[in-house]
Write a protein that binds this DNA or RNA. Structure first.
Lengths: 210, 210
DNA sequence: GATCAAACTTTACGTTGTCAACATGACGTT
DNA sequence: AACGTCATGTTGACAACGTAAAGTTTGATC
């Protein structure tokens, strides 16, 4: 029964902190997989523990409770988003830069479906968690910077906060609704890429002075 | 114990079908309240039954299981949305009409938070439910009709499906994200009404020919 | 090498969703 | 009017879940 935990004594690649090399990350990963497969409703702390190969009470020592784990997952999602937006912001042309941000948002969401399925579900999260707020504001700031660059380029009167909120809401709405709308209209909706580009064009035009 | 169910023998307004005058509707109402209070994660079949004053297994006879009840709730949400969009579509000016639809969407969402909290959570719903699909397509058709009217007025080349998807995604994204964004940015975000009107203006301008 | 705290397991308890069995009321048929 | 039938609602049971408490193992530090 106990050889399973000791059959790999060497393989010291990382500074294996304790028994498990990195349980919190493993649990986050398993949680992301599970939520990605079954959605937030199909999530179960015990199932996550099972997939990580630990007992059902192990997660509590790192995340406290279910909300703690999902909050950590959401924070990681914001972290990935912030990184993707930062990478997309290397483009010098402000117009192209915002378009890159739009693509980066949707790509990140599609690559991390488990993270983005919980990111805006406040009833599942500890909204006051410092990590969550930190990475959330970081992502928002990346977007705001891109909108500011756009303002400086095409329209000094552009309301940055307003425009950034519109961008974010539009992107997230698109990500969240596309499957439902496809199903409602009979799997026949327009491709998400097409809608994204159309939306970016529409917003960029709209942000210009009259 | 049994007088509570028989203290109102007359008052035969509706053709009270059986014991309870209308349990399915009462359960939907209780479910909407509960989801509105605690979010989908705080939902519980037994708690809903408790609030409706019936035993914990009563809902199963009408909705099968939890998914069945939430699916019915979502269908009712789409029904309300379709009705609101229909009312908003009485405006004759196509531009003002679409703006009305935007306001109607957000108002309906704010008036029925429980319904809209589950409407796009596919992991909670039976996506193939006939009622859900019926009212969902009905709502979508109302929106498409308004976009068609706009196309006929301002731009014959407008891609209606694309534009309608953009409108819907934008509105829902706004409704879903506003609380989170407010919290992230420190309760300081722009009012939702302002963002809505700005978004409508932006879209309407964007839908015009170059 | 003994000690201590962190990491993990085990056990236990209350709640939940769902199922089967049961009771009750309404309605049509004869 | 009696009866059978089915929809309606209740009761009891069971496995899975989240969480807390107590116990066990492991790594680090003195």
């Amino acid at each position: 029964m106990k050889d399973t935990a000791s059959d790999r004594p060497p393989a010291a690649e990382q500074t294996k902190p304790y028994h498990h090399r990195n349980l919190p990350a493993a649990l986050r990963s398993a949680a992301a997989d599970l939520v990605g497969e079954r959605g937030p409703a199909g999530f179960s702390l015990r199932e996550v523990a099972r997939r990580a190969g630990v007992s059902h009470a192990a997660p509590a020592h790192h995340f406290g409770d279910t909300r703690g784990l999902l909050t950590s997952l959401a924070a990681e999602g914001f972290e990935r988003l912030a990184a993707a937006l930062a990478a997309a912001s290397e483009e010098v042309d402000p117009v192209q830069r915002l378009r890159n941000c739009g693509r980066a948002y949707v790509n990140t969401a599609l690559e991390s479906p488990g993270h983005f399925a919980v990111i805006f579900q406040n009833d599942l999260l500890n909204e006051d968690d410092p990590d969550l707020q930190h990475h959330g504001t970081e992502a928002m700031m990346r977007l705001i910077e891109s909108v500011e660059a756009l303002r400086d380029e095409i329209n000094p009167a552009l309301d940055v906060d307003n425009a950034a909120t519109m961008c974010w809401a539009t992107m997230q709405g698109l990500v969240a609704l596309t499957p439902t709308l496809d199903h409602i209209t009979g799997e026949q909706g327009p491709t998400i890429d097409v809608v994204i580009d159309a939306l970016c064009t529409l917003m960029l035009d709209g942000f210009r002075p009259r």
